[in-house]
Amino acid sequence: MITVGVLAIQGAVAEHVAALNKIENVKGIEVKTLEEIEQIDGLILPGGESTAMGKILNYFQMLEPLAEKIKQGLPVWGTCAGMILLAKEIVGQDTTYFKAMDMIVKRNAYGSQLDSFQTTIELPEIAATPIPLIFIRAPYVESVTGDVTILAKVADKIVAAVQDNMLVTAFHPELTDDLSFHKYFCKKVSASKQVS
């Protein structure tokens, strides 16, 4: 049994928790304090507004302790805004958050809400069947360095990647019925728990 927390500062929290609780031997819970984060085996940074989440993490002095937890190996998955929080660099702005993953991300990279879209992708290493991808005012990864592995590209843009204990997706698996990415992340969390 593993416990995966969803950072409940703001955004699509309940959707992630519901998806996690559909997976066997996984308990999904909302977490919003450092004490709660101590109790979990893995953390999801949900979609929402990265500026709003960043501000609140900052107001309550949670940015640095969380960045440290991630550095120490807490498995973490950032979807959309969560991906922005993990990036070492953000195009066009000086403010960064956890500065954890070796990538440059571009916010609102596709445009306004009118440019939000849905597509599907085949990723044999994650799922046997095509996976639906939902992009909402989405970012993408402009470039990666270091030992980041690119998991998925859509129209030549990087939209999913992993590095050590970190997974990022520019899209929102929690908004679909497809559990492939949640299962993939939970496998990472289980593996990490067994090692430690």
Binding site: Q10, G11, A12, G47, G48, Q118, I134, L175
Partner: peptide, 19 residues
């Protein structure tokens, strides 16, 4: 056909927030 879903999805991203 999925525009309405995408539009509902944007509202989901605003949850827990202040407009």
């Amino acid at each position: 056909e999925n525009r309405y879903e995408l539009n509902k999805n944007l509202a989901q991203m605003l949850k827990g927030g202040v407009i």
